[in-house]
Computed example of a mutant assay.
Amino acid sequence: MAIQTSIPVNFDAYFPRGAFMVGEVEPVAKWSDDGQRQGQDLDKRTGHPLWQVRIIDADPDAKKGQGEVTVKIASITEPTAPPETQGLPFRPVVFDGLSVTPYVKETGGRPRVAYSLRATEMKPAPKTRGGE
């Protein structure tokens, strides 16, 4: 039997060099079949509202175009963005309950495997050695 749910993955395994949030936390829009916006989408498993954040993978070897990903978070309340670091628009974050769901994405008429990321919680990354 094929896996029917997302695959749990350790944050450090998926983002070995860390991750940085850019922009703001945003609600995930729910769309009707005819393309009309119908408010905020809900997580199918928990029923909680879905939020999304844009993340930059800190790995310098991340492939072009794949260095920025979106992580969705199911939460009753809007997740709180960590404070900016040294006035930069990048915020170091970690995710608890991270999972991936593989899917096929058509790009330029050629299918490729892509991954949808979900988490249960977003937190500020712990300070590294040499930090403030």
Rank of each mutant, 00 (worst) to 15 (best):
S116K: 09
S75N: 15
L88T: 15
V53W: 02
A62C: 15
P83M: 10
I56K: 12
Q52E: 15
Y103C: 02
I55C: 08
V113Q: 10
G97Q: 03
T85H: 11
Y103K: 06
D96C: 01
V71C: 02
I73V: 15
I55M: 08
P82T: 12
F95Y: 03
V53Y: 02
P92G: 06
G108T: 06
Q52A: 14
E84G: 10
T70Y: 11
G108Q: 04
R112E: 05
V69S: 09
S99N: 01
D57I: 09
V69C: 14
E68S: 14
P89F: 10
D61L: 15
P82D: 13
K105S: 05
I76P: 05
T80D: 06
R91T: 02
P79G: 11
V71E: 04
L50A: 08
A114C: 03
E78P: 01
R54S: 14
K105D: 00
Q52C: 13
I73H: 07
V71L: 06
Y115D: 02
L98W: 03
G67R: 15
Y103I: 02
K105V: 00
R112T: 04
T85P: 00
Q52K: 15
P102L: 00
S75L: 14
D57S: 08
L117P: 01
V113S: 04
T80Q: 13
A58Y: 06
I56W: 07
E78S: 11
P89S: 11
L88S: 14
G87A: 09
Q66S: 15
Y103V: 01
K64R: 15
L117G: 01
P89T: 04
W51S: 08
K63P: 06
W51G: 09
P92R: 04
D57A: 07
R118W: 03
A58V: 07
I56P: 00
E68P: 00
R91F: 00
D59K: 11
A62I: 13
P79L: 12
L88Q: 13
A58R: 09
A74C: 11
I76Q: 14
V94C: 04
R112W: 00
Y103E: 01
P83E: 12
Y115I: 03
R91Y: 04
P89A: 10
A114T: 02
